[in-house]
Design a protein around this nucleic acid. Sequence first.
DNA 1: ACGCCTTAATTCATGACGTGATTTAACTCA
DNA 2: TGAGTTAAATCACGTCATGAATTAAGGCGT
Lengths: 407, 407
Amino acid sequence: MERRRGTVRDLRRDNRSVLLWTLYFDQPLSRQDLSQATGLSPASVSNVTRELIGEGVVVEAGSVDSDGGRPRVLLRMNPSFGYVIGVDVGETRIRVELFDLMMTVRAKADYPLNPNEHGVGEVVDGILGGLATVLADGGVAASAVLGVGIGVPGVVEQGAEALVHGQTYGWDAVPLEGLLRSGTDLPLYIDNGAKTMGQAELWFGAGRGAQNAVIALIGSGVGASVITNGSTYRGSSSSAGEWGHTTIMVGGRTCRCGASGCLEAYAGAEAILDRYGLPLPGDDQESALAALIEAAAAPGPASARAAEVLDDTVRYLGAGIGGLINLFNPERIILGGWAGLLLGERSLPAIREEARRHSLRQPFAETSIELCRLGPDAVALGAATLPVERLLNGVAAASPGASRSAS
Amino acid sequence: MERRRGTVRDLRRDNRSVLLWTLYFDQPLSRQDLSQATGLSPASVSNVTRELIGEGVVVEAGSVDSDGGRPRVLLRMNPSFGYVIGVDVGETRIRVELFDLMMTVRAKADYPLNPNEHGVGEVVDGILGGLATVLADGGVAASAVLGVGIGVPGVVEQGAEALVHGQTYGWDAVPLEGLLRSGTDLPLYIDNGAKTMGQAELWFGAGRGAQNAVIALIGSGVGASVITNGSTYRGSSSSAGEWGHTTIMVGGRTCRCGASGCLEAYAGAEAILDRYGLPLPGDDQESALAALIEAAAAPGPASARAAEVLDDTVRYLGAGIGGLINLFNPERIILGGWAGLLLGERSLPAIREEARRHSLRQPFAETSIELCRLGPDAVALGAATLPVERLLNGVAAASPGASRSAS
DNA sequence: ACGCCTTAATTCATGACGTGATTTAACTCA
DNA sequence: TGAGTTAAATCACGTCATGAATTAAGGCGT
């Protein structure tokens, strides 16, 4: 991960990198477009491009007339230069997806989990099984895989080998990378699931183009991904963005993390249902929350009570979001996660209003609050962007197969 | 502020910059030391050094024996290459200080303010008067001044001309830079006072060497400065770090910002005194808070009540700090501001404990919570570092006098 | 078909830069 | 005084980005 700088060679790597990034997100582009977009001279674009085409990362694809003159040749990423795998370790299932470079899904695999028993061995088995399945189904050789991104709940401590701390479900410094290493030698990128979902929204969803944003993930629990200067902020030990355990009510409800007054203890789906207290139809949290929202809308005896719980939730959420606005001054707040979507669909305007009441005028005015745009696969998708990010940054060199022997 | 990158010339500027930064903070250093510290080759260090000495930014200063061989020549910044001015616009006074490049004070000036009437004109007059005074007292020509840094309370919106929003004391988009421009043509750098104080602690105080830190400023109100990747984080419209108005108690006390439940409404000095409610000796908040702390320690009728108020304060503060730890995952939290110091001296261990109770284990374990190390002039000192930062980054070119005509 | 025009991309000559190897500088010690 | 030692400067070389010049690839009018 060491990034040298200072020699004229590093300069080339950086230029190559900005060129790849612009091409990745705005393709197809002609060499001329690239020159304009990156600020590099046409000559340099030509040189770097030749190199990239030679390596097979970039391909020429069609051309466009330019009234009267020589037509522009369009450049694209080569989608099959290499493949990436994204893994979403969720509360109820492990999902594994195989993508090409442009993030087209090639194969999927699901592995159900017992929600109340996050056995490490089971998770490891599920991931390894999923890897084998998608490679077989997708017809892709392991040597063509650039890497495997894995989004897990809980804090991921990056180091020689990533450790996972899941304070709310009993994982304490689990050496997930080491455990997986014995079953595969693909390059692994393990990160917090909220962060990978955030990166998915940043790259392909409601966060596109943002330099500073916060993606809030509200599911059973509450998490967030903070984007600063265009990339995921990780802090000193890569656990930044743990929004769910911000105190919004000193001395308040006890949270499953052990503290009291956490946002998650009020606005997480589990907490919402618990605060409502009454039984609801549906055998999982998702349908229960949907039922609660329906109850609040429909006339009936439970309506007022349900609406009150939801309105309180909006207030808590608004307070939490207001804090994010004040602290991070983002240009965008994106509300995601299945519970975030349900709540947002019902009461996004109210959430905005509560966020306004709990933040300062100037930063609030600079922020837009929106719903996420990607579906439930965003965690896996975002995880799969991790190896792509590495490729775009120019760390992964020429041939994709080489990455296997990177022990 | 545009920073080009991509040409071999930009590379030189960057290398020059890292060399200047290392020299600034670890001087004196020999060329060899610099080579080792920056990773640049001895040859490059030699070249860049020659350039810097030629410009007068760096000077040779003495030498050190190296058992048997040619002695190492030590290099230093030239303290009188240029001068900088720092301005602290506080609640009760404006303080203006003149420094040389190495931040040795050359002159000071104070200008009292009526605490309850932050007249814009008065502030402008005070600053302009202070500038003239320190230049005269310090015997420094205006042409030798690299710039003037100004730390103000409230949100500073950077743009063509900096605007100041002081929501808590009635400044709304005040064009401070424009107003000052008519009285001086020195380069101006206006920033939030908590941020400039944070930068002072980062450069010279308890934050030295930190890559990720939060400097909490607790005075009459509450602010913070967030350091990410070694420099002040500003967000999309440079108002990031407004910690004081984070909600820690939904539906709680009304804050002077208009919202309810803000941290500032509980842990700011004004709020602490208000929560105590009873009269205290002393004619300003500072002596009143000191008296409150004394009352809690001494036996007496008011002791229990005072201790309770302070203990509550610690809890609120701990909740706020816990949120910072979870969200930013800093390696260090630094407690500053006059009230922060008073509270910290009394109960830093308790604050640490409450922060622990309100944060997740893993990020808390990575964080140390300390008191600031600089005195009450930190805001002005930090403001004065703003033009120095620009110099170190290589934006300011050869002769310091040239900066005057940078309109 | 042909030449002219327009635009895109490449090539070329140039200058800036960092670097390892070599040389010079500066000082110690026997 | 000369050998040894370490610091710094210089040199020769390779890499790179770039503006200018050149080539490539099409349209259009005659």
